[in-house]
Computed example of a mutant assay.
Amino acid sequence: MQLYLETLRSGGPVYSVEPTARGFSITRRQTADPADFNWLASGVMEAAGEAFVALPELDQDSNYFRVHITVCEKDPSSLHDAHDDLP
Rank of each mutant, 00 (worst) to 15 (best):
D33Q: 11
T20C: 09
T27F: 04
L58V: 07
S77I: 08
F37G: 05
L40G: 01
P56G: 04
E50S: 13
T70M: 12
S62W: 11
S16N: 09
G11H: 00
D33G: 04
L58T: 07
P34C: 09
T7P: 00
H83L: 14
R22M: 13
Y4C: 06
N63R: 10
P56D: 02
S25Q: 15
E50K: 11
E18R: 15
G49I: 08
P13A: 06
Y64H: 09
F65T: 01
E73N: 09
R22K: 13
P13N: 06
T31I: 12
E6T: 10
R22Q: 14
R66W: 03
N63M: 10
R9F: 06
L79I: 13
G11R: 01
G49W: 05
C72Q: 13
E6M: 12
T31G: 04
D84S: 15
C72F: 05
N63G: 08
E6Q: 15
H68N: 14
L40R: 05
R66L: 13
F65E: 06
D59G: 08
H68A: 12
L40P: 01
D33P: 07
S42E: 11
R22Y: 13
H83W: 14
L8T: 00
D36K: 11
N38T: 06
L86Q: 11
I26L: 15
R9D: 01
N63K: 09
P34T: 08
A35H: 09
V67T: 04
I26S: 00
D84P: 03
G12L: 08
L79C: 10
V67G: 01
M1C: 06
N38Y: 02
T70W: 01
A48Q: 14
G12Y: 06
Q60K: 14
E50L: 12
S77C: 07
E57Y: 10
P19W: 00
Q2S: 11
G49K: 04
E18T: 15
V14A: 08
R28N: 01
